[in-house]
Simulated scan of single mutants.
Amino acid sequence: MDQFHDIRPYNDDEVVGVLQNLLQTPDFINTIIGFRFPNWPTFLRGPLSLLVKMALKRQFSGIRNVRDFQTGVANYMERMIKNTTSDVEYRGIDKLNKNVGYLFLSNHRDIAMDPAFVNYGLYMAGLDTVRIAIGDNLLRRPFVSDLMRLNKSFIVKRSANGIREMMAAFGQLSSYITHSITKEHCNIWIAQKEGRAKDGVDQTDPAIIKMFYMSQKKEKIAFPEAMANLNVVPVSISYEYDPCAFDKARELHQKSTTGNYEKAEFEDIDSIKNGIVGQKGKVVVTFGDVITTEGIETPEDFVAEVDRQVVTHYAIQPSNESAFAMQQGLPATDSAFEVYMQTCPEALRETVLAMYANPLKQKQKYINV
């Protein structure tokens, strides 16, 4: 019995069948048409569907397993990096051992690109790519779930109802993560808290750490030993420009002024698309040190160490420095950021500046201690 069958990524022997089903999924085909041919008239949808299916069938014909699929994803990543970034830098990746499974606990700025940049760095360094934690709130369309699970994503059941169902979901998730790292020596990527840090403040949710511990706690393993078994490595991802910054600011502004914000039905899907195609400037991904549990006795102790590494390893960009200066009423230190802010709606200006300045302010707190 596969106890993780409903949340785990697809196995190699499932890949061909899933791809064949995708070819017969109108929602998948229509989404590609809308993305690639947004301005084409509706009456051409029929012929376009046939052409898209034929093109996909050719692309899928060479895919027989998960690695084949991820090689194709890597090709798309190369084009995306060329078209939407000025540079991508990896720090600390040389410290990783390819024979060890790690739990990469990351700050969270972009739904799809955060794990994608981590994955690409590992792939290029000859290390095993990650199994990616993704909330079921992003998987309302079945084809999205299929694509994510083909790319080694596993499902976090955020929509579980009631305490009993929620605890069962967390227990299954904890067991899956522990099994992946300790038994299969696979790498895991998961965000340090639910949802993106839209305000630019990176903080770990203690509930995440307690969830990691659940499965080993049942086996009476002490907290420090259990966390040491997971080889936790904090990861800091820094974007010079956030393609979704104005959308995030709009949400934060509306919440602060009305007390409420209702997401559109497929708003998260739009955020994924905008994050992929939007301009990012320089991107820096920094892998921290495996957390040794010496002196760490509680989840709160562990949270403090994750936060320290994420914040202090965060690569400060010219956009962060400029936003901080502009908050003080000083000129931007980088002319490109000044031009960027001229495109920002006036009502969102202070929110956007805070979003970019907060990583620098967080880092200063650790430096000044």
Results as ranks from 00 to 15, higher is better:
281 G>V: 09
355 M>N: 10
37 F>P: 05
245 A>W: 01
128 D>V: 13
85 T>M: 10
206 P>G: 06
82 K>L: 13
183 K>D: 01
102 Y>I: 05
247 D>S: 14
234 P>R: 01
149 R>G: 07
51 L>M: 11
68 D>C: 00
106 S>W: 01
45 R>Y: 04
152 K>C: 03
255 K>S: 05
178 T>W: 01
256 S>E: 10
259 G>F: 12
331 P>G: 04
234 P>D: 00
221 I>P: 05
246 F>E: 09
44 L>T: 15
268 D>I: 07
288 G>N: 09
63 I>L: 02
256 S>Q: 12
12 D>Q: 00
70 Q>Y: 08
5 H>E: 15
237 I>R: 01
128 D>P: 13
125 A>C: 09
273 K>A: 07
59 Q>C: 00
224 P>N: 03
304 A>T: 08
349 R>S: 08
227 M>I: 04
5 H>M: 11
132 I>L: 05
99 N>V: 01
142 P>F: 09
60 F>K: 01
277 V>F: 11
344 C>I: 09
273 K>Q: 04
234 P>M: 00
232 V>H: 00
162 G>C: 00
29 I>T: 01
186 C>Y: 02
250 R>T: 09
271 S>G: 15
279 Q>T: 14
67 R>V: 08
79 R>T: 15
37 F>W: 07
16 V>K: 10
362 Q>E: 10
364 Q>F: 13
91 R>Q: 14
214 M>W: 06
209 I>S: 11
290 V>I: 12
299 P>Y: 07
123 Y>T: 13
34 G>Y: 08
4 F>E: 07
76 Y>H: 11
190 I>N: 04
303 V>P: 02
